[in-house]
Nucleic acid binder design. Structure first.
Length: 381
DNA sequence: AACGACAGCAACCGCCCGCTT
DNA sequence: CAAGCGGGCGGTTGCTGTCGT
């Protein structure tokens, strides 16, 4: 039994607002103030739904709006906050004066989700996505062959996490309930097939150590789920992950062509001393994407209450990470860890000369491994 | 020049929540 | 306590301009 509609839709105008309508609405609100949206159209003489009036005012007519030209700084804030808050656009907008949730949502869906997805596939983190430009990618500048069309996105339930993802699933995510692996990994035409069961059985288990040995390193790929931040792995060959299905989409030239070159997070000693990665809530484990240190502070499960109570703290922390302190603490508690990876060879960090970088910067690792601010908070930072 | 595909954006829709009655 | 209402939020859709063929 649904709610009654907010207004009688019969005889009401829909679609684009005209300048005349804008003027009427603006003048009415200037004289009478905001609120009473249901009765506003009638009182103002507008043939519009009250909700439509509210939306038009909040998103476009308010005087304190910036509108357009989102800066790099704002973009970075959006990316960081989205990493923790997910699609809670109103909360994100609260950190960006003059920006509305609708504007941020649209910007994310049309610009950032695509970019982040691209860089995640390359094994980079969201911060890099904020810095680097899509135009760096091969084939950039051509509009075709880029973003998945909405019809296809709907078909395969992909596309920035906004298509085909309902409120219930979002709540499950926030509460730490295990959700399905990202459809982009499961059903994409990149031939990357990630079976959750396989995930259980492979080196990155829900509660086990990341235990990648050299043999696995030749084929194991770690991916961060854009849906829930979990760390997934796949035994799909790297080139299947990174390289598009067509020549046009090929990422050739990005330095991943060497056989066996893959990003694998490893423990310092095989089977011990490493960083356990908890990926779900089964068996009582915390639902985190970050490898939570077993000997560290008590885990905080990401139930709705905890998330809600710590969200503002998390936002502040996210915007002001003390990475040095985090790193020191993590090293103290987790022991040695590093990226057993040459994924810096991508060239995006300027190491396209084939140089080997043993240690991955912690911030990259955290983001890549899907750490959320809840995780960081749980670790006591 | 015409057409189709796509991106970007404005706006709508349905659901949820808090408050009031 | 239940129902209704107002408002807010996130997801989705439809329109329009742009680009490539």
């Amino acid at each position: 039994m649904g709610r009654a509609p907010c207004c009688e839709k019969v005889g009401l105008k829909k679609g684009r607002w005209t300048a005349e309508e804008d003027e009427i609405l603006a003048k009415y609100i200037a004289a009478n103030g905001e609120g009473s949206w249901r009765s506003l159209p009638k009182n103002a003489g507008l043939l519009r739904c009250g909700k439509s009036c509210r939306l038009r005012w909040i998103n476009y007519l308010r005087s304190d709006l910036k509108r357009g030209n989102i800066t790099k700084e704002e973009e970075a804030v959006i990316i960081k906050l989205h990493a923790t808050l997910g699609n809670r656009w109103s909360l994100i907008a609260g950190h960006l004066p003059g920006r509305t949730d609708n504007e941020i949502k649209n910007y994310w869906n049309s610009h950032l989700s695509r970019r982040i997805d691209s860089f995640r596939r390359l094994g980079l983190d969201g911060g890099d996505a904020a810095i680097l430009d899509l135009s760096m990618l091969p084939g950039a500048g051509k509009r075709r062959g880029g973003r998945t069309s909405r019809s296809v996105a709907r078909k395969f339930a992909i596309g920035g996490g906004t298509v085909g993802r309902g409120r219930q699933q979002q709540q499950q995510q926030q509460q730490g309930v295990v959700v399905s692996p990202p459809a982009s990994l499961v059903q994409s035409d990149h031939s990357v097939v990630l079976d959750p069961d396989q995930n259980q059985a492979s080196s990155v288990t829900n509660e086990g150590l990341v235990d990648a040995n050299e043999e696995m390193a030749s084929e194991l790929v770690c991916c961060t789920s854009p849906m829930d931040g979990r760390l997934w792995d796949t035994h799909a060959p790297m080139e299947h992950l990174l390289f598009g299905p067509t020549e046009e989409e090929s990422m050739a030239g990005w330095g991943w062509s060497r056989e066996g070159d893959s990003g694998v997070m490893s423990s310092s000693e095989e089977g011990g001393g490493g960083v356990p990665v908890t990926g779900g809530q089964e068996e009582g484990g915390a639902a985190t994407g970050l490898g939570v240190v077993e000997s560290g502070p008590e885990l905080v499960t990401k139930g709705e209450e905890e998330v809600g109570s710590s969200s503002s703290l998390a936002e502040e922390k996210l915007l002001d990470w003390d990475l040095e302190a985090m790193e020191a603490k993590l090293w103290d508690e987790a022991g040695e860890m590093w990226w057993h990876s040459e994924h810096q060879d991508l060239g995006m960090h300027g190491l396209d000369d084939g140089g080997y970088q043993e240690e991955e910067p912690l911030d990259s690792w955290l983001i890549f491994s899907g750490a959320s601010l809840g995780d960081i908070t749980a670790l006591g930072w």
